[in-house]
Amino acid sequence: MHELSVATSLVDMACEKAHAMGGVRVEALHLRLGPLSGVVKDALLFSFEVAAQGTPIEGARLVIETTPITVLCPTCAEERVLASAQRRRCPVCDTPTPELTGGRELELRALEVWEDAAAHR
């Protein structure tokens, strides 16, 4: 369970960004999370609350978008979306697909911040 380490990195990152924007209040963090990132969504949501306590972003929401696993099918020469990581084959032609094009994301996509920090404190 390394989600607490990941959550701590996420909180540090958001605090730095908020500070760099002049100490704005953070309403929400938007995260893109791939099934092959090695991070479990529910564990991260739980850890995030713990990690954010006592920091400038305490109370901010963590919004997680799960990204699809995508691969390049060498036979179809098309990008395909896979239903599961347990079967890395093209859903159309059943060819094994070594090349992963998406699914490993662990990315802070955006922050939702209050422009006028003072009004909302």
Binding site: V6, S9, M13, M21, A28, L106, E107, L108, E112, E115
Partner: peptide, 17 residues
């Protein structure tokens, strides 16, 4: 005024990377 969305697009484990 609603909150503003600020794009970040950075890996959470960027420091480690």
């Amino acid at each position: 005024m609603p909150p503003r969305i600020v794009e970040v697009r950075e890996g959470v484990l960027k420091k480690n990377d």
